[in-house]
Design a protein around this nucleic acid. Sequence first.
DNA 1: CTGTTAGCGCATTCAC
DNA 2: GTGAATGCGCTAACAG
Lengths: 349, 349
Amino acid sequence: MAVTLADVAARARVSAATVSRVLSGNYPVAESTRNRVLRAVDELEYVVNGPASALAAATSDLVGVLVNDIADPFFGIMAGAVQAEMGAPAGEPGRGGEKLAVICNTGGSPERELNYLTLLQRQRAAAVVLTGGAVEHPDHAAAVAAKASRLAASGTRVVLCGRPPIADATTLTFDNRGGARRLTEHLLTLGHRRIGYVAGPAERTTTRHRLEGHRAALGAAGLDADLERLTVHGLYDRASGYDATLELLRRDRGLTAIVAANDTIALGVCAALRDQGLRIPEDVSVAGFDDLPFSADAVPALTTMRLPLHEAGARAGRLALGREPQPPGGVAMVRAELMARASTAPPRG
Amino acid sequence: MAVTLADVAARARVSAATVSRVLSGNYPVAESTRNRVLRAVDELEYVVNGPASALAAATSDLVGVLVNDIADPFFGIMAGAVQAEMGAPAGEPGRGGEKLAVICNTGGSPERELNYLTLLQRQRAAAVVLTGGAVEHPDHAAAVAAKASRLAASGTRVVLCGRPPIADATTLTFDNRGGARRLTEHLLTLGHRRIGYVAGPAERTTTRHRLEGHRAALGAAGLDADLERLTVHGLYDRASGYDATLELLRRDRGLTAIVAANDTIALGVCAALRDQGLRIPEDVSVAGFDDLPFSADAVPALTTMRLPLHEAGARAGRLALGREPQPPGGVAMVRAELMARASTAPPRG
DNA sequence: CTGTTAGCGCATTCAC
DNA sequence: GTGAATGCGCTAACAG
C-alpha cells in the first residue's frame, strides 16, 4: 500500500540495507549510490515507517514530556523549551536525527502520571522528562520511582525538571525553599510583620518547599507563631488566590502583605484585594513566584521570584538527548532570583 | 530482554495469539483463560511493545497536535483540551484504548510544520490536529494540503482547529472575521472614530481575517480612509503590542481607541499607553481578542472577543478520534462572543 | 563499500 | 474458543 524501503531499493537498484544506511546516515555509503537512493526517495515520496524502524532498532525517537497543566504557562514554557531542543531541524524533513517530543498532560493526577509513564514505556521512548512538582503520597512516590527505574533499565533516559531527585534519574531541582525564603525576607526587610501566605495543594513538593522557605524566613525573625493561622491552602490557580485572600482578610484584617505560592495565585490575590477596596502596595503588598510573562505587566507589576523556566527546560531537553554531561551526582539546582517590583513596598505608618 | 507476549503466553499456558486477543479485547475469549492471562500480565509486569504492535496492526495510537507556540495559553488551552479527550483513563494503565497525544511546537515556522507532519506520517499517527492560524504562502499552503491528503489517504484523520478548511480534513474554523467586526462595531457604538489597530504577522490567516473584520466595520461606518495609516503589524506577543502602540501614537496622538489582534498584544498596548501617561479607558480604550484567562484580571479588565478554546479543542479531539459525527460539509464555525469589560468606554468630550 | 540473512514483537489469517 | 503459521517494514550483524 504505502511505499516501503524495498520499493526505494528496487528503484535505486541497491539493496534495502543500503537504503537504510543512507537514510540513517551513520554508515559510509558511496557518494554516487547515496545520490541515487536519495533521488529515489524523493521521487517515491518515501517516508520511513517509524514503528517498523523502532521495532527493529529496539528504540524509538519519541521523548515524553510530562506536565501538570499544559494550559499553564509555567509548564508551557518548560515544555516548549524541551521540545525546541529536540529540533526537527528545517531542511531535512523526514530524515534522521529528529526526536519527537510527546507532551503529556497529567492534570496533576497521580494515576494519569503513571498511565502516561506506562504509555511511554510501551512506546519504548528514548527519554522521559518529568516537569513540575511531584505528589508526595508515599505509594505514588514509590510507584513513580519504580517506573522510573524500569524505564531507565530498559534504556529510556529519565530527567526530572522542577522536582526532587529520585534514583535512576538526572534531576534539575528548583530552589523553591531558598527562593521562598529570600522572598519573605524581602518583605521582612521592607518592614512587614503580618504576612499572609496562600499555599498550593498540600500534597505537592513544590508547595511544601515554598512554604518551608517562607516559614524559615519568619522563624529567623521570630515571627512564626502566626504561621499556621495566616496560611491558607488552595490550588495553583487564580480562583484559589481570590478565595484564599478573602479568608485571610477574615482571619486578620490587619495584614500588610500577602505572599502567594505562585504568580497565578497572586493574580487572584490582587483581584480580591482590589474588590475589597484595598490598594496594592499602599495597603497590602503582594508577591508571587515563578515570574511568568504576565507578571511584569500586572498593575502594579508583580514582585516575584524568577525561575529560569526556559533555560531549565532547554537543559532538561539536552540531558534527555544525552547532549549535555550529567551534573555532579546527577543533580543540579536551579536558583530563583528576586524580581522586586511595584507590588511590594514598606507597610504604611 | 524485556518481557514479551510470548513470556506471558508461556506463563499463562496459552498461545501468544490468545494473549493478544485478551489484551486488545476485541475478540471472544473464555472468562477463565482471560483471567489467567491477565494475572500473568500483572505478575510479569508486561507492557505491550507499541512499535511492534503498530507495525503488525499498521496503525499506532499516536495523535499529533500541532501548535504554533505551546507557551502561549491560546494554544495551551486547545492542546490541553484535545489531550484530555484522548484520556488515558485512570485505572487501566497499559491496556487498550488510550491514545497518546503528541503536542508539536512549530514555533510558527512553515518548515517545522511540514517536518512535524512528516514525522507524524512516519509514526503512522492515528490522527493529526492542526491548531491556530495557517501561513498563507501559496507554496506552503499547497505543501500542507498535499501532506494532509497523503495522511488522509493512509488512514490518518486530519482535523483543523482554528484555521480555514482544506480538502481531506475536518475543520473547526474560528469566526475571526465576524468577531473582529463586532468588536470594532462595539467601539464605534461607544462613539470612537479614530481607532488604531495592532495586527499580527501579515502572512497568517488569523491576522488577515481579523483585520478584514475590523475593516468591514470601519467601512460600514465610512471610516476606512485612515485604515492603512492606523494599522501596524507585529508579532502575536506583548512586545509587539508595546512597540506598535508607540508607533501608532506617533502617527496620531489623537487616537481614542486601539484594537489589538489578540489579548497578549493588548497587554503590551496597555503597558505602552500607561508608560505614555495615558489612562485606560479614559484617554484611550483598548480591546483584545481570544479572552485568555489573564484578560479578565487585567487592570482595567480587558474588553475582548471570547473564543471557546477549550470547547473547540475538546471537539477537535473527539473528531480526531472519530467519536463525534462530522459537521455538515466537514466544516463547522466556532463563533466569538463579545466580552465588554472596563478597558473600553466612550471617548472623552 | 554493498548485499544477504535473520529476526525485532505482535496481530492476524487460517485451521482445529 | 484456541493454537500454529505468516508477515508487517526495518535494522543489524555477517559476509564478501
